[in-house]
Design a protein around this nucleic acid. Structure first.
Length: 600
RNA sequence: GGGGGUGUAGCGAAGUUGGUUAUCGCGCCGGCCUGUCAAGCCGGAGAUCGCGGGUUCGAGCCCCGUCACUCCCGCCA
């Protein structure tokens, strides 16, 4: 290799290099044989350079040329020359030159590939993952993995500048209750005992605050044994951070600064700060989601003022039962077919809705009976006499489609929110390449678990209640808002965090509301509670998901596209074959025995 | 755990109401071609139609089961 080490990368040479003798290393991206003149597109991370083997090449090279195949790994030496007029390739950065090869060494041959190394190749995910090392050779994947690196570097730069310290925490920890299912690691030295893989470094970063590292961060791997999704893997990476002596605005400022830096460095995009803030309740009411896509408006509105006296039993019944009636005005979509509407209804049904009512605005924009807006079709007949008032209040105009949802508030908003998302996606309302961030704040601190008939923490048990609810924690848990915040972008939850409880007495009250007795709390989190007895500073933090961040920046809709070696939705890795069985002896060493697969 | 979509040659796809030898593009192999750059032209090989069962005179197509990929609900503090 000493002789044939590259002098340039495959993306480096320009017309100014004409005349130089260079050595390139790379893979054969394309081969074109014109019966005497051979063109090789040689590729590496940095680009593609055209190499020519023609009549002027040494004889042994002309003999070697026909034996070359795609993806052979080569070292070659040649002379750079400017391409003749009319033979330049404007689409390639190196398209003004070519390298006339004098010597080619085959470093490695390649079998025919399962799929082409090409942006246009559209192999199924399992094939791509089975041969991930080939998939990663494409410029598209190289760009995304490189972007991920840029993002990580930018995060470290920015946080380090702000005096944050990167500290690693263990990847084998104590299993804690609640939250996601833990991945467990059996202990050989202590048979029957298990470590857990962290779902996040939560407890450790809080303890680091007690230790006086008032600004901590870590690019941390987190593990959750739950069903995966396009934006969720069994293992993912978080930009975990925590600060002492702060309120949520301090956390927001750090994250806004970090995102600004990351987008500037990664994409050359300037973000507008501060990001807008929306209460959880407002987000639900206006967008039917706690992670709304704000790239398009299409807001949900309250329809309940128009229900009384309409004679439409479904709506009146929903209100009488303490529920809500919501409406979505879809501009200029009165042309939606019954089939399209019933597809939207199906979307709503998956979220527990019983149906989706609709009507269309027709008529004119005047205020006389002949010229005024009309509500036609669907449930329009129940609201005929109030059409002017309704369309004015909703800002609806002739040609608009109105979609209604009547149910319990949560069902009505989430189901209509799902319809909103579906319409946004189908009509491509979101402009690609735009990024709309928002903070979602004031989440409920507790959620009632219907099945187990008890209150549980909506986020986690260390979240600080908003100050104004401290009096009513026990008497009215449902109304308590936590000092909890999510960062959302383009319809994805990008980060989640909170101000934590640092007062053991308050922590005790929370435990007791979620039915955690003293003993259990001690057994589970004793080490944290103990640490808090020694001068715990007020603190809070947040954890942006690195995979989702890079995914959004890359314009992808699955985090698999920005993880070098992801797993499938089923938790399998088609490349290494994991998960797989282990030897009897390995089990025996751990004191484990497999249960029979199917009990019947 | 539940629902939808998909699975046909190495890759991507077509395949009508169930009917003869399963089609096309790329790739692969061979040949031609001296300026291409997704090169072109000619020829060729390559398929237990994901797997298992069933219905039928006959199944890529219909039914049941199963596996995989994917999207969604649940789940994911």
């Amino acid at each position: 290799m000493e002789q044939m080490k590259r002098t340039h990368t495959c993306g480096a040479l320009r017309a100014a290099d004409a005349g130089r003798t260079v050595t390139l290393n790379g893979w054969i991206h394309r081969l074109r044989d014109h019966g005497g003149v051979h063109f090789i597109n040689l590729r590496d991370r940095y680009g593609v350079t055209q190499v020519v083997i023609d009549d002027d090449a040494p004889r042994e090279l002309r003999e070697l040329a026909p034996t070359l195949r795609m993806e052979y790994c080569l070292a070659l030496e040649g002379v750079v020359r400017e391409r003749p007029e009319g033979m330049r390739n404007e689409a390639m950065p190196t398209g003004g030159i070519e390298v006339a090869a004098r010597h080619v060494e085959i470093l490695s041959t390649s079998e025919p590939l399962p799929f082409m190394i090409d942006e246009r190749s559209d192999a199924r995910d399992d094939v791509r993952l089975r041969y991930r090392y080939l998939d990663l050779r494409t410029f598209a994947m190289q760009r995304k993995i490189a972007l991920r690196n840029t993002v990580m570097q930018a995060v470290r730069e920015h946080l380090t500048t702000l005096d944050f310290i990167e500290i690693e925490t263990p990847t084998m920890i104590k299993s804690t209750p609640e939250g996601a299912r833990d991945f467990l690691v059996p202990s050989r030295l202590h048979p029957g005992q298990f470590y857990a893989m962290p779902q996040s470094p939560q407890l450790y970063k809080q303890i680091l605050m007690v230790s006086g590292f008032d600004r901590y961060f870590q690019i941390a791997h987190c593990f959750r044994d739950e069903d995966a999704r396009g934006d969720r893997q069994l293992e993912h990476t978080q930009i975990d951070l925590e600060m002492s002596f702060v309120g949520r605005e301090d956390v927001f400022a750090v994250v806004e600064g970090m995102m600004t830096h990351v987008f500037r460095r990664g994409l050359g995009v300037e973000l507008e700060t501060p990001f807008p803030r929306l209460s959880h309740e407002e987000a639900m009411n206006r967008f039917g989601s706690d992670k709304p896509d704000l790239r398009y408006s299409l807001e949900i509105q309250d329809f309940s003022p128009f229900v009384e006296g309409s004679g439409f039993a479904v709506f009146e019944g929903a209100l009488a039962a303490g529920g809500a009636v919501k409406v979505l005005v879809v501009p200029d979509r009165a042309d939606f077919s019954r089939k399209q509407i019933s597809e939207l209804e199906e979307v709503a049904r998956t979220y527990g809705a019983k149906g989706l009512a609709w009507t269309k605005v027709s008529g004119g924009t005047g205020s006389t009976p002949e010229t005024s807006p009309l509500l036609e079709g669907g449930i329009g007949k129940f609201f005929t006499d109030r059409a002017i008032e309704i369309t004015r209040a909703l800002g609806a105009k002739p040609g608009d489609l109105l979609l209604f949802m009547a149910d319990q508030w949560k069902t009505a908003t989430t189901a209509l929110g799902a319809v909103r998302s579906r319409i946004g996606r189908d009509l491509e309302l979101a402009q690609p390449g735009t990024f709309r961030f928002a903070w979602i704040v004031d989440f409920p601190l507790f959620e009632y678990n219907q099945e187990e008939k008890r209150w549980e923490a909506a986020h986690h048990m260390f979240t600080m209640p908003r100050e104004e609810y401290l009096e009513t924690l026990e008497s009215d848990p449902a109304s308590v808002k936590g000092d909890l915040y999510d960062l959302v972008c383009n319809g994805f939850e990008l980060a989640s965090g909170s101000i934590r409880i640092h007062d053991p007495a308050l922590q005790k009250r929370i435990f007791s509301i979620v039915g955690f007795d003293e003993d259990e709390a001690q057994r589970r989190f004793g080490f944290l509670l103990e640490a808090f007895r020694y001068g715990a500073p007020p603190h809070g933090g947040i954890a942006p998901g690195l995979d989702r961040l890079v995914m959004i920046m890359a314009g992808e809709d699955s985090i698999r596209e920005v993880i070098a070696f992801p797993k499938t939705a089923n938790g399998l890795n088609p490349m290494d074959g994991s998960p797989g069985p282990v030897d009897e002896q390995q089990l025996a060493d751990l004191g484990l025995q497999l249960a029979p697969r199917k009990p019947e």
